[in-house]
Every structure is written in structure tokens, then in C-alpha cells.
Amino acid sequence: MILNNNILNIEDLVIRYVTEDGIVEAVNGVNIKIEKGKTLGLVGETGAGKTTTALSILKLIPDPPGEVVKGNILLDNIDIMKANESKMEKIRGEVVSMIFQDPMTALNPVITVGDQIAEAIFIHQKVTKKEANNKAKEMLEMVGIPGNRLNEYPHQFSGGMKQRVVIAIALSCSPKLLIADEPTTALDVTIQAQVLELMRELKKKFQMSMLMITHDLGVVVEVCDDVAIMYAGRIIEQGTLEDIFRSTKHPYTEGLFNSIPNIEDRKAKLKPIRGLMSDPYDLPKGCAFCDRCDYQMEICKTKKPEKVYFSDTHFVECHLYNENKDFKLNNGRK
């Protein structure tokens, strides 16, 4: 049964964390679609709700304190919300895999890397332990690590090598969707490039779709087809790579670009976004970005902005475009 051509379809997802200090609305009505074979970049600063969104796809939100309040998640046309734990165990690793941010802590220190890769294969495929081990060796070589290091422990690998092992684990059962949560943030710059290149290569090879979580716009340009900008639990602007980079609409997106140094014009001052993200326990009534926005208007303080579409692919949630869709942001460097 083919319902649509999307590998992932998230609708109106609301997730909150209930702690003794109050309730945090971590994800606040998020919609995400990823077409088969495409890569979506989910961009935002720490605490925007990116990882929470990703974990909900695997149904791994820690509960308590996490709580999925409402929403629909269709993963390869499987209704995640209705799937029970044993079904999820089959889905995880097989349909969707996840790479976590810090390779230094993402591997179990007391199990050999070979066993950690083979475990996933053994769970999902009808193979003997030995076959799983052989496959693990192949995977290791595929990510550029000599197969004879199969029986070594994580502490014997460098950070970049560990991330390769993590990638090998994630791809060992050829998942349809790979979620990568800031896979290069914890690595050195030179290693970052290698790992990104490897991911791009493997993505092509396995014909995977990918959800790339990052706060690094450089990474986005490298690997993404589409981009969603997340702020305080909402997608505030979404479009193709072209849409976002060439016709930036949201002041926050503009702010992200202005925070990157420009080599062509070194005299140009960096224009960081001022202030900090709003207190997640107490989000403002209106637009969550309002307090930090250079284009702030009266309406922003009281009313949540609605989606404004510029094309089938590009939308923004901002009051600036309520009346005049041709409004141009002017705080940029150009």
C-alpha cells in the first residue's frame, strides 16, 4: 500500500517535558516531510527541540519526563504512534537508524566494536552469529576502518574513527531513513569533512533518506536538499536549500546567516542574534522570537504568526509577510 512518496511524515507534533520546575513545551506543533531519497536539514540552536523531534521518530523520548501530547508520525507509512514496543524494536535499526552527537560516548565501552555492529545485524536479519560477524567486518571496511580491528574496544579508536563505527552500526541493516544528530559537532574540522563525505557517499550507495540535525549552515550546504529552521519547538521557516539560502524570509534565519564570518568582506561586522532563547518554561504568548527580533512589531507580542507560503516548498511563520509577501529583510550584509 503506497500512501505517498514520503519516507517520513510528521504532523502537528507536540511534545513536552514535565519536570518539578514546570512544563517545557519542547516541540510545539511541528510538521516535517522528507521525500524518499532526500535529505532534510533540521537547523536550530541548542534547546530548539531538534533532538526531541528526532527521538520521537524512534519512540525513544524518555518517559517520564517526556510526553508526546499529540501528533502523527508516519515512517515509511508505518504509524509510529500506534506501534507497540516490540514493533518499534523491529523498526529501529531496520527502517530508521540514528547517529548520536558525541561519538566519544555513543559506543559501549565494554563491548568490542565488532560485537556492537554485529548485534544490530543479528537482531534484524536471519543470520548466524558468524555471518553477522562477517557482515560487521564488511561494514567496518566500508566506513574505512581495517576489518582486523573488529575485536578492539572503543577506547582504542580516535574520535573520528569512533564516529565511523557509529555510522557502521547505524547503516548495518540498510535503514530507509538515517537520522544524524549533529554527527560532526564533536569532531575536529578536518575529520568533520571526511565524515560528511563518507555519509554522503553511503547515502547514495544505500539510497537512504536522511534527517540531518545541525546548527552548522556549512554542513547544510554540503549535504541537504531541503532545510527546516527550528526555533523554540516550531519550524519557523522551511524550503529547499535554494529557498533558504537565496531568499531568506525569517529574521531568525537571516540572523543565523549573519552570525557566520564572511571572508569576502572581513571588515563587515558579525551581527550575532542578540539575547538568549526564551525561557522554555515560559514561552511568550506571541512569536517566540519576538524579543530578539530586529523587525519586532506590536502584533508579534500578542499573536502567534501563521504560515505564509511563497511556493509549494517554501514557507515562513512571521508576521512581516501578513500583508506584503514581497517584504525584504534588510539587516543583511549585502
Partner: peptide, 9 residues
């Protein structure tokens, strides 16, 4: 989390 994400029960 890595273990859970690869489908370990």
C-alpha cells in the same frame, strides 16, 4: 540510546 536505536530489546 545507540543500543536502543538499533533495535535491541
Amino acid at each position: 540510546n545507540t543500543a536502543k536505536a538499533k533495535g535491541v530489546s
